[in-house]
């Protein structure tokens, strides 16, 4: 109630507490729908992995698990820097907040850069599903599967691109938002009493990271390496 007349208070809320509670609940609700959004893809993945496990295992060897692991570390660190950013915002350290947020963006960009390298490699090796996919004989040789399993290999790579692509799009949406927050924070928009946008974006960023924590073993680590 003490901040009832803060400039951050929107007209239809009684006080900042109600406003913050609403925003946080809204973001959690948004994350719930995101889980269902990714959930559809995870279901498709689960069914086809169960159905064609051998092929999925064989194809999984064509992802570079070292790059995947490195990217996992990069993302976990970006979650840490994001958390530090939220913490700094809660303490009212506007420059530190901006710095942590920029660091988060740098780490996110490194992740996306590695992803570009991986995708390029898939294009070069004709592992992108569709008419340019390896013809059956070559696929059998390259992926160590039966020629008749080429279609199932395409399923694996369809899922790889759809799942990591959707994840990457979520990061690409996140980065400009974090950049905006860093800019706003630098100019002193956030105070210990009002820094909800930083907190909410943090929630979103952590969610996107967690999705990757699931994607990495499911796509890169099928079977032994």
């Amino acid at each position: 109630m003490s901040n009832a007349h803060s400039s951050a208070l929107r007209h239809h809320f009684a006080n900042l507490d109600q406003q913050k509670d609403s925003s946080v609940l809204g973001m959690w609700t948004f994350i719930v729908q995101e889980i269902l959004f990714f959930g559809g893809l995870f279901l498709v993945y689960t069914i086809y992995r169960h159905e064609y496990f051998d092929v999925f295992e064989a194809c999984s060897h064509h992802l570079d698990w070292k790059l995947g692991a490195a990217n996992t570390v990069v993302l976990i660190f970006s979650s840490l820097t994001m958390a530090m950013g939220v913490h700094a915002a809660a303490l009212g350290q506007k420059k530190a907040t901006a710095a942590w947020l920029v660091l988060t963006i740098v780490l996110g960009s490194i992740f996306l850069g590695v992803k570009v390298v991986e995708y390029t490699e898939k294009f070069e090796h004709h592992l992108v599903p569709g008419p340019h996919f390896l013809p059956p004989e070559e696929a059998a040789h390259e992926l160590k599967i039966q020629p008749s399993q080429t279609g199932q290999a395409q399923l694996y790579f369809s899922l790889y691109f759809a799942m990591t692509g959707l994840h990457a799009i979520h990061m690409i949406i996140g980065i400009p938002i974090i950049l905006y927050l860093a800019w706003r924070s630098w100019h002193g928009a956030y105070t210990p009493a009002y820094h909800t946008p930083v907190e909410l974006t943090g929630l979103y960023w952590h969610f996107v990271d967690i999705v990757w924590i699931f994607l990495f073993p499911l796509l890169y680590l099928i079977g032994h390496h």
Partner: peptide, 20 residues
């Protein structure tokens, strides 16, 4: 969200020849 991702899969299959 589930219909959203399903539409996305249909579009990927139709537009980019993915194979779901």
């Amino acid at each position: 969200p589930v219909i959203a991702v399903t539409i996305l899969l249909v579009a990927l299959e139709r537009g980019f020849h993915f194979g779901f």
